[in-house]
Computed example of a mutant assay.
Amino acid sequence: MLSTGALRAHLLAARLAGPVATSREESLRSYRLFAARDPRVLIGIDPEWTWGQRDLIGLMADKCGVSGDPRQTQGHDVIDPERTLVALDAFAERIGAVAQRGGTVLLGTGHPHRLLEFYAALADALSAAGCTVLTPAHGRCVDITTRFGLRTYNLDYVRGVAFVREPGVPSSGRATGAHTHSPLPVRTVLAAAVDEGGGLPELVIGDHGWVCGAGQLGFEAIGLADTDDPALFVGEAEGVVSVVVPLDDAVRSDYYRPLTRYVLNRACLSQ
C-alpha cells in the first residue's frame, strides 16, 4: 500500500505537484481567454457566473495553490501537493461508490500519450468490479476546430478508454491518439450511447472536454486538470463537475502509476 507521505514525495519528485512545467504566462493567458469566454478555453463549460481574470486567479489559488497575486506574471506555476492529495481522495471516493453499485462508466482523455494508462487501469478495475464500461461511437468521425483549421478525427478506444486519432492512423491498441481539449468527442459518444440503447454513464472520468462536456450535460464527471485549464475548476465551483484533481497532466506516463495504485487502494479496488 502506498502511503500518503510516499505519494506526496512522489508528486514533488515527479513534478506532478510543487513547481510544475506549466508556466505562469500560460496560465494567465488561459484565464484571460476564459474571462473573454473563448470556446477554446471554456472546453464545454457554459459558466453561470461572471468570471474575470482576478476571479480566476483567486479560484485557482484556492483550488490548486498557485500564486493569488495578479502581479506575479512569470516563472513556473506551483501546485500544492496537499490539495492534490485531498482531491485524489475525493476522486477515489466517487470511483469506489460507482464500483460498489456496479454502475455504468465512461472514460475518455484528451492526453492519450500521457494519461491513457492511468485511465485504462481504472477501467480494468471497474470492469472487474462489475461495472459496465461504455464504448459507443467506436470509429465515428468528429470534426474539431484546431489552430490549424477544421480537422477530422476518429473516435477510438483502448482498454475501455476513449480518445481521438488522426485519420488514417491504424488502431493498433496503443495510445497513438491526438491531444485535444474539445468537448465534441464526449458529446458524440453520449449521443451515440442514446442511439445505440446501451445505457448512459453514471460517472464520466477523464480530463479536458471529456469532463467539462459531460458535466455541462448533467452527467457526474470527475477528472484531472493542470493550472492552465481553469474550465474544470470553474465547473467544480459551479457544481457542474464533481471532483477535479490539480496536477501536471503532461509528465511521463509512468509517473502516474503511483497515483493509480493510490486511487485503486482508496477506492477498495486494488487487485
Score class of each variant (00 low, 15 high):
254 D>N: 05
182 S>C: 12
74 Q>L: 00
253 S>F: 05
123 A>D: 06
225 A>Q: 02
176 T>K: 14
140 R>Q: 11
147 R>H: 08
200 L>R: 07
92 A>N: 10
139 G>A: 11
237 A>C: 08
172 S>H: 12
267 A>K: 02
179 H>S: 14
139 G>F: 13
26 E>A: 07
254 D>F: 06
266 R>A: 09
50 T>K: 04
159 R>T: 02
102 G>N: 07
255 Y>V: 11
75 G>N: 03
145 T>C: 05
141 C>D: 12
209 G>F: 00
166 E>H: 15
263 V>L: 08
34 F>W: 07
121 A>Y: 04
248 D>Y: 12
257 R>N: 02
203 L>R: 07
179 H>I: 15
104 T>I: 09
3 S>L: 01
34 F>I: 09
7 L>S: 01
130 G>V: 03
134 L>E: 04
203 L>A: 10
157 Y>W: 10
194 V>N: 08
166 E>M: 06
141 C>Q: 06
73 T>D: 10
240 V>I: 13
116 L>A: 13
146 T>A: 07
78 V>S: 06
123 A>G: 14
259 L>A: 03
77 D>R: 09
44 G>I: 04
68 G>N: 09
240 V>F: 05
203 L>W: 04
150 L>R: 10
59 L>Q: 08
156 D>F: 09
82 E>N: 08
237 A>H: 04
23 S>E: 13
173 G>P: 15
5 G>L: 14
119 Y>P: 11
68 G>W: 01
102 G>Y: 01
232 L>D: 04
96 G>L: 13
34 F>P: 00
224 L>H: 00
217 L>G: 00
96 G>R: 13
231 A>N: 00
224 L>D: 00
244 V>R: 05
93 E>P: 01
124 D>K: 01
100 Q>T: 12
11 L>S: 02
207 D>R: 03
67 S>N: 00
234 V>F: 14
86 V>D: 10
130 G>I: 06
90 A>K: 02
119 Y>D: 10
206 G>Y: 01
195 D>V: 15
271 Q>L: 03
129 A>V: 01
233 F>Q: 06
54 R>V: 06
226 D>E: 03
71 R>S: 08
164 V>T: 12
218 G>V: 02
21 A>S: 11
115 L>Y: 05
177 G>M: 15
38 D>I: 11
128 A>R: 14
114 R>W: 08
231 A>Y: 05
40 R>Q: 08
192 A>T: 13
35 A>P: 08
121 A>M: 08
70 P>K: 02
11 L>F: 10
151 R>L: 09
177 G>P: 13
33 L>H: 09
166 E>S: 08
188 T>N: 10
169 V>W: 02
228 D>Y: 14
264 L>P: 09
34 F>N: 02
192 A>N: 14
83 R>K: 06
113 H>R: 15
128 A>E: 05
257 R>F: 07
100 Q>K: 06
42 L>D: 02
267 A>F: 10
121 A>P: 01
208 H>A: 15
46 D>V: 15
95 I>K: 01
113 H>N: 11
156 D>S: 10
40 R>K: 08
53 Q>G: 10
59 L>C: 04
40 R>L: 09
115 L>V: 01
4 T>W: 03
250 A>T: 13
17 A>S: 07
262 Y>V: 15
135 T>M: 15
136 P>V: 12
247 L>K: 04
205 I>P: 07
238 E>T: 03
165 R>N: 13
143 D>N: 12
6 A>V: 04
20 V>F: 14
245 V>G: 01
82 E>L: 00
176 T>E: 14
